[in-house]
């Protein structure tokens, strides 16, 4: 069984993001990293390979040149090789066009199971798995807290506030995993060095047969009108209990419509 893991190279969440004149994140001015939420998917793929369930694990990303660093990080955790779709025309793509590129790349690479994180830590849309499933016409099982593969089907546990479901989907399928699946291993130096020797293939839009006009900022289905930094958190209100504490607290909450 062949697993392809979709991973995203995101701007470092703790860094100060700067925005370019076209209102996209200025990727040159901020450190990047493999999205923490995708690390869970990478770990699951590595575990399935270790269990002998997966015979091949490939990491796929769409992103700027530096996104290869994210692939190296994934390859240090596990996997055999990686594919990097990089093309200037992709800059500024919305989720719809990103899913198009991903779907084409998946078709070209071939797969039995696609894994990915539950969301990216930058855009946080969580829609990519569904969009890719739709474009490829394959099954989807999202927000897996646990997953196993057996007899040509993937079974997941999906936890919500009201229930814990067990869902089975026959392969080929796409599964997004949550942090409940377990923290990614901390790669040893040996593994980091080993990852440098694993192959990374680079594809352009032309390689995938995607029209450059169908993606990028110009083709985006949503447009960013304005960007402003989040205002700094202001100091909270401290209520000192001098016998009236409870009443003051209640007033505070009531005044803001919480109670």
């Amino acid at each position: 069984m062949k697993i392809v893991v979709l991973v995203k190279y995101v701007p470092e969440p703790t860094a100060t993001w700067k925005f370019a004149p076209d209102l996209t994140v200025d990727r040159a001015g901020v450190e990047g990293r493999l999205s923490e939420l995708d690390e869970y998917a990478v770990e699951q793929a590595a575990q399935l390979a270790e269990k002998g369930v997966a015979s091949e694990v490939v990491f796929l990303t769409v992103g700027p040149a530096k996104a290869s660093e994210g692939l190296r990080k994934a390859l240090a955790i596990g996997g055999d090789k990686a594919v990097h779709v990089v093309d200037d025309a992709i800059h500024g793509s919305c989720a719809l066009s990103t899913s198009l590129v991903l779907a084409k790349a998946l078709e070209k690479e071939g797969f039995d199971l696609v894994l990915t994180g539950m969301a990216s830590t930058d855009a946080e849309l969580s829609v990519i798995p569904s969009m890719v499933a739709d474009r490829l016409g394959i099954n989807q099982a999202t927000f897996a807290g646990e997953l196993s593969v057996e007899g040509g089907a993937v079974t997941i546990r999906r936890d919500s506030d009201v229930a814990s479901e067990r869902i089975t989907a026959s392969l080929p399928a796409i599964v997004s995993v949550t942090d409940q699946t377990g923290e990614a291993r901390y790669p040893a130096f040996k593994a980091i060095m080993g990852a440098k020797k694993k192959p990374i293939t680079t594809w352009s839009l032309a390689d995938l047969g995607v029209d450059a006009a169908a993606v990028g900022l110009g083709a985006a289905s949503v447009r960013t009108i304005d960007v402003a930094p989040t205002p700094a958190r202001t100091a909270g209100t401290i209520i000192t209990d001098d016998g009236e504490g409870a009443a003051q607290l209640a007033d505070f909450l009531a005044g803001r419509g919480f109670i």
């Binding site: 470092e12 923290e183 291993r185 901390y186 040893a188 040996k190």
Partner: peptide, 22 residues
Amino acid sequence: QVLMESAFPEEAGIMLRNLEHA
């Protein structure tokens, strides 16, 4: 233990990741 085996008290991994990323 850390570089070759990646074997250390698990909770310290949070610190290492934070150093790497932040």
